[in-house]
């Protein structure tokens, strides 16, 4: 099977702090990581490869330093990796990004299954996956937590809202992956060393035949008008009476007062 995994390097949003003076995000010093949902997607892809044979290709659109997460992918089962990068891609929203990615993917060849994480933890939009599937005109299933493949048939388990759906689809399909029951594997010392020695090729706009009106800021229908830090919660009320019982009673009192119950 020819498997593709789309990954993104994101800031570790759990480490982000807010500058109290300027009321802006402090982005320096925040470690960059492989988007957690992409890590699950990659693990699912590698397991599929191990079961059904084939190759796993990792691809990412981002700046040069995104090669670090591609290296990580190579150390946990991806066979090859590509970076899609060019200054003129900057400012692309999800529509423009998915357009560029789809062009790069078409250049690389035909894929049986394309895996994406369900969303990136910086943008949190969950849009690039389905938009990519639309550009490529292939079927999509979102929120996948399990996948099996037999010949050209894929059977997936989709986890949404308060239920699971067992869905059948055919190759080629794009799957967006939610947190799986299994954790992504550790790299091994050998796989890390091999990954370091593997070349990651960069695909630039010169390699693709792009409609320039559809990329970058120009190609992005959504525009960011402003950003702001949300109002922080006021300091809460601490209740610690002499006994659990008294604390509970006091809690009900204050909640009644505040008309919360």
């Amino acid at each position: 099977m020819n498997i593709l995994v789309c990954v993104k390097q994101v800031p570790d949003t759990t480490e982000i702090k807010i500058d109290p003076h300027s009321n802006t995000l402090i982005r320096t010093g925040v470690p960059s990581i492989l988007n957690p949902f992409d890590a699950y997607a990659l693990e699912m892809a590698v397991r599929l490869k191990e079961k059904n044979g084939g190759t796993v290709t990792a691809i990412s659109m981002g700046p040069e330093q995104a090669k670090n997460v591609l290296k990580e992918c190579l150390s946990v089962g991806a066979d090859q990796a590509f970076l899609v990068s060019d200054r003129i891609f900057g400012g692309s929203d999800t529509l423009a990004t998915s357009y560029i990615l789809s062009a790069a993917i078409c250049k690389l060849g035909e894929f049986d299954v394309i895996f994406c994480g369900k969303q990136a933890i910086d943008g949190d939009t969950a849009q690039v996956g389905p938009e990519l599937a639309e550009h490529l005109d292939i079927a999509q299933v979102t929120y996948v937590v399990e996948v099996e493949a037999t010949d050209r048939i894929l059977t997936v388990l989709r986890e949404i809202d308060e239920r699971y759906e067992k869905i059948e689809t055919q190759i080629p399909t794009l799957l967006t992956v939610n947190k799986t029951a299994f954790e992504p594997r550790y790299p091994t010392v050998k796989s890390k060393l091999t990954a370091n020695r593997t070349t990651i090729n960069t695909i630039t706009s010169a390699d693709l035949d792009l409609d320039l009106t559809r990329i970058g800021l120009k190609g992005s229908p959504t525009k960011v008008k402003k950003t702001f830090v949300p109002v922080q919660r006021k300091k809460g009320l601490r209740i610690m009476e002499n006994s659990g019982r008294q604390s509970a009673i006091r809690l009900v009192e204050v909640l009644l007062d505040a008309k919360i119950i």
Binding site: Y186, P187, T188, V189, K190, L193
Partner: peptide, 22 residues
């Protein structure tokens, strides 16, 4: 077992003998 999977037991074993040759 997990350490072995990662290769922590053969860090300095030469590559031609199956190690990581560190």
């Amino acid at each position: 077992k997990k350490a072995v999977e990662m290769g922590l037991h053969i860090l300095s074993v030469p590559e031609e003998h199956g190690g990581s040759g560190l």
